[in-house]
Structures are given as structure tokens and as C-alpha cells.
């Protein structure tokens, strides 16, 4: 077959280009263009509400890296990630292993229940949880006191020491159903004959798991960790509605910091979109860097 020229190929594929156009325009407008613009905005001294924007070079970045609140939020985002992802991965796996048993008649029911918080609006979860964890007769404190686990009410969301673990716990509760579904998908790829063969060879109990099943589900584990890690860095709605970053900024993660500097301001001061963009760019690059590292690790592991 003789090779067609590029222009001929392009002409023949004209319908293909027409078909990718609508989606490409949307992605361009709401994903690619914003990425480019946030780089530009980050170089401006700009409130976002007036037309007068002043070009100030890298000053926003300099200010951000000298702001302790910025670094606190930055590290808190990672504390959040490292505190929640392992819990979700392990707990999700254990639950999936149990619910994967067909013999368990109520298994579909349990799956539905555990998945239910996933479909519930995250902002509503945040608001309802402020009730649940209220120190004034909130159900969580009522339960703890009724069972004599604590003597007095705990101000879960009002105490800087307990607020982050509480929000992390709610986050795990909210999204564990997804992790469980990932693991169920992984476990169901283990072929029955592999299992049968292992049994004939006398592999049982933990040996069956370590030598037969874990190696098969491991490639899934890496994808699951990657997906979970990225989503644990996107927790704005939950934290904004539960604590708005408080008390005294003790639960302020990066996205809440960006939102606060961009849109929410103390009386009398102007919002600072330019500065918030600089923080956002810094953050986006950091996340992409971590993702790339994980992606690299994933490819290496899969090759072996």
C-alpha cells in the first residue's frame, strides 16, 4: 500500500476532526485555558473585581513562600493525604474481601449501605457533620457520654487538636465506598481456576493471600493508590462546609487557603485574585509533580 500524503490523510479524516471539536472546545475553555491564564494572573497585583491590574512579576510567589499560613496549609494537605489514603486502602480492602463472598447473603445490602455516603452531596455531609459533632448535645457526644467513653462533651470541630482528625475521619467515611468498589473490581479479576489450583497445591489461609491473590491485585493497588492520593488533595467542599479552615486556621488545607485569599476577605480589605493564583499555580505544580512521580513508579512496577 502506498502511503498517502499528510494533507490527504487529514482530508479523509475530516469527519473525525468535526467529531472531536465540541468536546475539545469545552476542555479548552474550562481546563486548558484556565491553566494558562492562572499562570498569567499569578504575575499580577489584581483584586479580580476591577480592571486595574498591575504586572508585578514574581512578587506574588515571593510573598507566598514567605507566608507561614501558606506553608501550614501546604503541609496540612499532605498530612491529610498521608493520614487518610492508607486507612481507606486497607479498610476498603478488608471490607471488599468479606463482601466478595457470594455465600454472604446480605453482601449486596452491605455494599449499598457502605456506598451510600458516596452519592450524598459533599457540602451537605459537611454541614450535617457539624451537627453530628456539635459539643452541644450532638449525637456523637451523646453517644460517647451515654456509653461512658468520655465524661464531658468533646468539642471535635472547635478544638485545634481534634479538628483535623475529625475531618479526616469524615472524609474516610464519605469516600470509603469508592475504595471498596475499586477493590471489588480488582478481586473479581482473580480467576477461579487460579484459586482452585492453589487449593489443590495446598495453599490456604494467609499463604493463599500472600502468594496467589496479592500478586494479582497488586497492579490495581497502584492505580487505586494514585487515584486516592489525588482525590485526597481535593477536599475543599468538605472542609469549607465543616470548618471553613478553622478554628484559628487549624484545618486550613491548600484549597481553602486559595479560596480564602481569592474570595473571602476580612472587612475593609480587597480580595487578591493574583496572589491566590500564584498559590494555586504553586500547588498545581506540586500535585502534578507528585502524580508524575507516582506514574513513573507505576510504570516501573508494571513492567516487572
Amino acid at each position: 500500500m502506498n502511503k498517502k500524503s499528510l494533507s490527504q490523510q487529514i482530508y479523509e479524516a475530516r469527519w473525525c476532526y468535526l467529531f472531536v471539536l465540541p468536546c475539545s472546545i469545552l476542555t479548552g475553555m474550562f481546563v486548558l485555558y484556565p491553566i494558562g491564564m492562572s499562570w498569567y494572573f499569578s504575575l499580577l497585583d489584581w483584586s479580580g473585581f476591577t480592571k486595574d491590574a498591575k504586572f508585578i512579576g514574581l512578587q506574588n510567589y515571593a510573598e507566598a513562600i514567605n507566608d507561614p499560613f501558606f506553608w501550614n496549609a501546604f503541609s496540612r494537605s499532605f498530612i491529610f493525604m498521608f493520614g487518610t489514603v492508607p486507612v481507606k486502602i486497607i479498610l476498603g480492602f478488608v471490607i471488599a474481601v468479606f463482601l466478595n463472598n457470594q455465600v454472604l447473603k446480605l453482601s449486596p445490602f452491605f455494599r449499598t449501605i457502605i456506598f451510600m455516603p458516596v452519592v450524598t452531596a459533599i457540602a451537605i455531609i459537611g454541614i450535617v457533620m457539624t451537627f453530628i459533632f456539635s459539643p452541644f448535645n450532638g449525637p456523637a457526644n451523646k453517644f460517647l457520654m451515654a456509653t461512658n467513653l468520655t465524661s464531658g462533651p468533646i468539642d471535635f470541630l472547635g478544638n485545634p487538636d481534634t479538628v483535623l482528625p475529625t475531618v479526616m475521619g469524615v472524609y474516610v467515611w464519605k469516600w470509603l465506598g469508592i475504595t471498596m468498589m475499586y477493590w471489588l473490581a480488582a478481586l473479581q479479576t482473580v480467576p477461579q481456576d487460579v484459586y482452585d489450583a492453589a487449593k489443590i497445591d495446598g495453599a490456604q489461609g494467609y499463604r493463599l493471600w500472600i502468594h496467589i491473590i496479592l500478586p494479582i491485585v497488586l497492579p490495581f493497588a497502584i492505580v487505586i493508590i494514585l487515584v486516592e492520593a489525588v482525590s485526597a488533595l481535593n477536599v475543599f467542599p468538605l472542609i469549607e462546609t465543616m470548618t471553613a479552615g478553622g478554628p484559628f486556621f487549624s484545618s486550613e488545607v491548600m484549597e481553602v487557603y486559595i479560596f480564602r485569599t481569592a474570595f473571602v476577605t476580612d472587612a475593609g480589605t480587597m480580595p487578591r485574585l493574583g496572589y491566590a493564583c500564584a498559590a494555586g499555580v504553586f500547588w498545581g505544580v506540586a500535585v502534578l509533580f507528585i502524580t508524575a512521580l507516582q506514574g513513573f513508579w507505576m510504570r516501573r512496577t508494571r513492567r516487572i
Binding site: 474550562f30 494572573f41 479580580g48 489525588v230 499555580v281 500547588w283
Partner: peptide, 24 residues
């Protein structure tokens, strides 16, 4: 190229793009 660009956008945090979207 098209697929490559798409895959890259999976991992863009929403907080990163929200301000320009509002502006747009």
C-alpha cells in the same frame, strides 16, 4: 497528541483552575 493532552488533564486539581473559569 489529543489523547496525551486529555490524559494530562485528569490530574489538574479543580482549585487550580477555578479563578480563570470565573473570569472567563
Amino acid at each position: 497528541i489529543l489523547i496525551g493532552i486529555l490524559i494530562a488533564t485528569i490530574f489538574i486539581p479543580q482549585g487550580y483552575t477555578i479563578i480563570p473559569v470565573f473570569d472567563l
